[in-house]
Nucleic acid binder design. Structure first.
Lengths: 214, 214
DNA sequence: ATCCTGTTTGTCAGTCACTGACAGATCGTC
DNA sequence: GACGATCTGTCAGTGACTGACAAACAGGAT
């Protein structure tokens, strides 16, 4: 009961200090003491110095994929992902705290590896979602390819959006992303993709078109 | 002169220990002492504990993008990347040491963030390459989208290949990846992609097809 | 108020990655 | 064999994190 309040206090103080002085210039001890607590206590509530900033990744991923599952099946996977982002951002605009978190992360290059690892976690969530949606296995190669593309495209749309400073909307960027690529993985006809056709070179032979096997 | 030999010795010992006992279970001090050297000396030759394992990322990226630049222009970007991988792997098969490095990395989940950050570095290299190839800006949104897709697809092909244990070839996987997606970014006609067409929803309106503006 | 029990916290000591400063060793060279 | 440059060891310190233990602090039952 009390632990929760302490946890929130530490988190709030941590964000403020990270934002003011830079994540790398603030030690866990400083955050702890500013929150009226010992360093040891800090690490009892947060496994890492990063956690007050990033929150629980699994939780966020589950939330997002839950939204994804509510998207109609006639959408391409990429359409579904982009629509979810745009809808979510419009429906529940980010709180000042959310914006602070984003600001801190963007201002801290040394955090890049962690962010990237977080993306991989998202990717796993997408793989499961795609597997459900298409009836394929989670080990399926095409599922893996598509899932990873969804993740990075999501990131690109997001990054372009936040760095455009409002001149672009999530919607317009989503359309441009969609126009740039064309995923061959409809939920219904879940293309079986190429097998092996024993000639040399990597290029497509005849034409990819729709090798339809419904 | 002597430093180079010391460096190589540390590197060799590091790989052996990492491989035998696991990266996380071997401290920099242990590596140093096994190499007949102080911990401080270890960190004089390598900036991080990771470096003996990963080498210089920038160097590897430059090497790969140099190969990319030699690919004929009529190839799709993805074709060029996949062809380069396949060709490289066939021409210069990995040494036992290369295999050891891969083994260690795969056996060490805590290294995931670093690997991911490395991928982002590759992505930056790809962006430059694509910008040259298409005559676009390195800040171009479509370039960013395509570059990130190239990177993750490269990874997917590679991972599927190493985990298939030889049942799949880089070539066959490359073909499957190519069939799965279809990039709209030819080096010549470098599609201008969609602008804004003011209706709601993220879905493509008419059809993406080839909005040719050559 | 008091006792009892479980939770929360502080203290202490330790590991590991990594760094700066300085002094001793070693190398190639004349 | 003296000499300047390079290489290395020693020492001390920071910052993230962990385990062990005991003191402080709940809240409810008596």
């Amino acid at each position: 009961m009390k632990a929760l309040r302490t946890r929130h206090r530490i988190e709030r103080v941590a964000l403020e200090l990270f934002d003011r002085d830079g994540y790398d210039n603030v030690s866990a001890r400083q955050v702890a003491e500013a929150a009226g607590v010992t360093e040891r206590t800090f690490f009892r509530h947060f496994a890492t110095k990063l956690e007050p900033l990033m929150g629980n990744p699994d939780q966020r991923i589950e939330y997002f994929t839950d939204l994804l599952r509510q998207q109609p099946l006639h959408l391409d996977p990429l359409e579904a992902v982009l629509a979810t982002i745009a809808h979510e951002e419009a429906e529940y605009p980010p709180t000042p705290e959310d914006l602070m978190r984003r600001r801190i992360v963007l201002a801290t290059p040394s955090l890049l590896p962690e962010i990237q690892a977080f993306e991989r976690a998202i990717e796993r969530g997408f793989v499961e979602w795609l597997a459900e949606r298409t009836g394929r296995s989670v080990d399926d190669f095409e599922i893996a390819v598509v899932a990873s593309i969804l993740v990075v495209t999501r990131r690109n749309v997001f990054e372009a959006w936040s760095s455009s400073g409002g001149s672009e909307t999530l919607l317009s960027l989503s359309r441009r992303a969609l126009a740039t690529l064309d995923l061959h993985l409809d939920p219904a006809t879940a293309g079986d993709a190429a097998g092996q056709e024993g000639d040399q070179g990597v290029g497509r032979d005849g034409d990819a078109s729709d090798d339809g096997e419904g």
